[in-house]
């Protein structure tokens, strides 16, 4: 199939929206990055100064490190979600019921999730420490209040929040694997585990690669729960790139610099995506 008219017709509307509403703004944002601008009133051209400052900004690199760590945890958690999906898609009783239940948390807005987890992490009244106390732990941690634990504590709700999202995608992808192939394998005497690993997994490798990228990039630019639950604190211990950018722009009146941070975030995302696509390229494009 090759038809210029149809290709244009099919891609142009989406492409136009993308260019006008995402690319033009980000280009403008890159331009603001060349300015000394509080976001209020006049701006002044300062060339690459913001970008140069970004390169040696320890706080930015610390927050980039936190974002990167979140990315690693998120990608690793995909394996768990994949395993759950494999179980759900096998013909066990009640899988339909379990699947629906498992996806419910993803319906909740960040406001609700943040409130729930703040209550769970509450050092005195919270569930987590009550549980620990039941097991006789003394000096229970203060979780979000301690710079040593805050970052890891807040990863838990973030990673959990997306469980439903990925289980949903994997489930749909696994359901997509034609019955005939599985049936044929079963007749040949393959065990359910073999079917899962040797047939189903390769069949959804394209989807899996997409989710790796989604979760990595999604983590690198993650913002919501960090902003609501810790505000990047205590004292920057849970700051990530997006919350750092937000703070510079909306709280510290440093719009020019914040734009540069946003650009830095984009470049890091690009680099990481390129890297992962190289790493996962080995057995590309399993088709049938």
């Amino acid at each position: 199939m090759s038809n210029k008219y149809i290709i244009t017709l099919y891609t142009l509307p989406a492409l136009l929206l993308l260019l006008v509403l995402i690319y033009v703004p980000i280009a403008l944002s890159g331009y603001y990055g060349l300015m000394d601008w509080t976001g209020i009133g006049q701006m002044q051209f300062i060339g690459l100064e913001n970008y140069a400052n970004l390169m040696k900004d320890e706080k930015f690199w610390a927050s980039a490190g936190h974002s990167f760590l979140l990315g690693i945890f998120s990608v690793l958690s995909l394996l768990l979600y994949l395993a759950v999906s494999l179980v759900l898609v096998s013909k066990i009783k009640g899988s339909d019921f379990f699947r629906k239940i498992y996806l419910i948390p993803m319906l909740l807005s960040s406001v609700a999730i943040a409130q729930l987890w703040l209550k769970i992490f509450d050092p005195s009244n919270g569930m987590l420490n009550k549980l620990l106390e039941m097991f006789g732990v003394e000096n229970t941690p203060v979780w979000l209040a301690d710079p040593n634990t805050a970052l890891y504590a807040i990863f838990v709700p973030i990673v959990w929040q997306y469980a439903g999202f990925y289980i949903l995608i994997y489930y749909a992808a696994l359901k997509n694997v034609p019955e005939e192939i599985i049936e044929a394998a079963r007749i040949d005497g393959a065990t359910p585990l073999q079917i899962a690993l040797k047939i189903k997994l390769p069949m959804i490798s394209a989807v899996f690669k997409v989710t790796i990228m989604l979760s990595l990039v999604g983590s690198l630019k993650y913002f919501d729960l960090i902003y609501v639950m810790t505000g990047g604190g205590p004292n920057g211990a849970s700051e990530v790139m997006a919350s750092y950018m937000y703070k510079e722009a909306f709280e510290l009146n440093n719009f020019g610099y914040a734009s540069a941070v946003g650009f830095g975030l984009l470049v890091i995302c690009l680099g990481m995506t390129w890297l992962t696509s190289r790493l996962t390229k080995s057995n590309d494009d399993v088709q049938y």
Partner: peptide, 20 residues
Amino acid sequence: VKGYNGFSNDEAKGYFMNEQ
């Protein structure tokens, strides 16, 4: 109060309002 650095003002206030 234990965990003060992780509490918002609203959460901390709860301890006073509930006489803790």
